[in-house]
Write a protein that binds this DNA or RNA. Structure first.
Length: 281
DNA sequence: ATGCCACCCTGGGAGC
DNA sequence: TGCTCCCAGGGTGGCA
């Protein structure tokens, strides 16, 4: 499940492979327009850079026509994988089954940027630069980047105090902070010793959680993300944060801090693992 | 406006 | 072995 660390790791590998390249052709599966749209508009566009906001990849394009820039927006959903393959292997047989390939962008160096997405939760579209609401409503209302100075304790604490939803729901809501998904929400709450279903988070706990989110995400970026199921890097390798996880996927195992048995539950409609002994409401 | 929940989609694991 | 059932989850839209 690609969250900020996974998407950032993909971004870092993708950039040197595609920046400066021009899209010369596209191919796509039949797909609901709300998930994959306007792919052909990328043809003739030159990729200027590979950026990221939250879990979204943003690739500004110069062109396709002079003075008509555009922007390629990609969300990996649950199972999205990006690869850059040699042109003589357009179906992606090398290191990746040809099945579930949804979109191909043929580049001017003969290689092909491929989006594979078994569960079809991903998105890929081309828009006017900055017209983010058109790509995805969530992209237009995204909160601050947690690993930058934009993510202030003041704003975070105020946002938590002004809501009666569970703290986990607030972490997953991309408007308070961008890029946190189910894995890193659970990890951050464990580190901050806060119960996922806590509904009143005061200043002191907000400060702990603010720091925990940053520490967990930074450590996961360092390990190039968590490969729990589908996620893999552009080079086909796995992220190495899996063995660092303290709670996600460890229900029934002992808490690494206090030894109590970690509990599975459902919070904010998501599978949740926490330590009932050291995470307080 | 806010919070909650069904829905989308399919591979894979559990259970029989 | 082979079948069916159910779960995983980010974002969206509809509801109270």
């Amino acid at each position: 499940m690609p969250e900020l660390p996974e998407v950032e790791s993909v971004r870092r590998q993708l950039a040197p492979l595609v920046v400066g390249r021009t899209v010369v052709a596209t191919a796509r599966d039949p797909y609901p327009a709300r998930r994959i749209g306007d792919v052909d508009r990328a043809v003739g566009g030159r990729i200027v850079s590979v950026g990221r906001r939250g879990k979204f990849l943003l690739l500004p394009l110069e062109g396709p026509r002079p003075a008509h820039p555009s922007e390629l927006v990609i969300h990996l959903g649950m199972s999205g994988i990006l690869r850059v393959l040699d042109g003589d292997d357009p179906l992606g047989r090398i290191g990746m089954p040809g099945t579930h390939v949804r979109v191909r962008l043929v580049l001017d160096d003969g290689r092909v940027l491929v989006l594979r997405d078994a569960r079809r939760f991903g998105r890929l579209t081309v828009i006017d630069p900055g017209d983010h609401a058109r790509a995805a409503p969530a992209l237009a209302t995204l909160g601050p980047e947690p690993l930058t100075d934009d993510f202030s304790l003041e704003g975070f604490a105020r946002g938590l105090a002004g809501s009666r939803a569970s703290v986990k729901a607030r972490l997953l809501d991309q408007r308070l902070v961008a890029g946190v998904g189910n894995i890193y929400a659970d990890e951050s709450l464990w580190r901050a010793r806060i119960h996922p279903d806590a509904r009143r988070v005061g200043r002191e706990r907000a400060a702990r959680l603010h720091a925990a989110v940053r520490e967990v995400l930074a450590a996961a970026v360092e390990r190039e993300g968590t490969s729990f199921r589908d996620y893999q890097l552009v080079n086909g390798q796995s992220g190495r944060y899996l063995t660092e996880l303290d709670v996600y996927g460890r229900a029934g195992l002992p808490c690494r801090r206090c030894g109590a048995t970690l509990r599975a539950s459902v919070v904010a409609q998501r599978g949740t693992t926490h330590c009932a002994a050291c995470q307080r409401r």
